[in-house]
Design a protein around this nucleic acid. Structure first.
Lengths: 216, 216
DNA sequence: GTCAATGCTCGTGTATACAAGAATGGCGCA
DNA sequence: TGCGCCATTCTTGTATACACGAGCATTGAC
């Protein structure tokens, strides 16, 4: 439990939304949430305000809060921006790589390899997240790291859906290999280009996304 | 005045911070703010929470809120990310340009020309902002537009300082010309490259920034 | 004289009460 | 029987009260 109830609640509700326990479009009643978590309405309101600022829910005056239900084209736009930021992180990482970051990336990359080899999509999901976070950290730009982490969080549910697509696991891993090589070789532009196409969703991957969103 | 007091207050306090009325490092007392704006502490707290989420202030439990005083290297990182996002916006704008966006960009560009010619740095400051926003809109990516607008807002005070630097006005305008040419020619990669170097702060422009921050 | 501990005061964190607006259901009229 | 308007109820928005924690000052002891 975090230092104050509001932040703790924000994390709780955020996780509930990201894990689809609170479905998109669902109304979030302050009183219901308050009794569910055993607190008063005040910290619930604080948590909702923060989620509103993050962009996870929509609060309309006198109308209450609802979980945002983003349209596919908006998800696409978010991936587009994510690709750009990850590309920047990769290019900075390649230029600024130090021993510590190199080890962190290597470790995460090897965990991805194991998960991909045995085809464990859940394990790969977590290892993949660690891999990308290692690259954010290696960029040595705190602000960029924060922005990437935040956007990554919001896109988390859709990333998970993507991994279900046939062959995506091994494709993803082989793309990781190229990215690691570029970063370790100090090839900033190469890392940028590879990360951009790794993260972005072009062509049939967009229809995969739409399809998986429809059947969820 | 906005629909609810909290949002109105957020804007008021945000403007006060961005215009340096509330200096970096300054303590924001809830009671003082409440009496100053003639409201109770509740909406003040809501506004502060939102500003905290945006990243303009820092709220520590039982310690209250202080205006964030970003270090120069962090400002640099923010410009670095901004450059990347604007580059993306420019490349998308070049590929997706329609008549409406073309006219908006042209209009803003011509206003910049007038302000630059007469050396009116304040007018140029506003026209420049409109110019960049026209490019965000031309990208036809709502999410990217939001992200750019938000980051632009946070960097606003420093942009203003930068314009004070000798010759920056005319240099900036001539860079705009190249950007407009690239976008109108449908040259996405050219627009991206030019915008990145236009927005980013490399070399001596970083020391200019640090110097202007110190003497403000 | 200096350092540490305790107590007081100020300010934030949470709860609750009250008011205002929006939505829904019922009743009346066409 | 259907549509529209009014009233009631529910939910949010704001205010205020109370409690807890942190910081600072003062006093006592070494």
């Amino acid at each position: 439990m975090s230092e104050n109830v509001g932040r703790w609640l924000r994390d709780e509700i955020e996780n509930a939304i990201l894990s689809s326990e609170f479905a998109p479009g669902e109304r979030l009643d302050e009183t219901v949430l308050a009794s569910r978590f055993g607190v008063s309405r005040t910290p619930v309101r604080e948590a909702l305000m923060q989620l509103n600022a993050i962009g996870l829910i929509d609060i309309r005056p006198r109308r209450g809060a609802v979980v945002i239900d983003p349209e596919p084209h908006r998800i696409y736009e978010m991936f587009e921006v994510m690709a750009e930021l990850e590309g920047l992180a990769g290019s900075l990482a390649a230029r600024r790589l130090d021993e510590e970051s190199r080890q962190a990336i290597t470790a995460a990359h090897e965990r991805c390899e194991r998960s991909a080899k045995i085809g464990d999509s859940d394990a790969y999901y977590y290892d993949n997240e660690a891999f990308h976070k290692a690259i954010y950290a290696a960029s040595r730009s705190e602000f960029l790291e924060e922005q990437c982490t935040q956007l990554h969080r919001r896109l988390r549910p859709y990333r998970r859906l993507q991994l279900r697509v046939r062959n995506r696991l091994s494709t993803s891993y082989s793309e990781h290999c190229g990215i690691v090589d570029a970063i370790f070789a100090g090839d900033g532009e190469g890392a940028r280009r590879l990360l951009r196409s790794h993260v972005g969703i072009q062509g049939e991957r967009f229809s995969d996304l739409v399809a998986s969103m429809a059947t969820r």
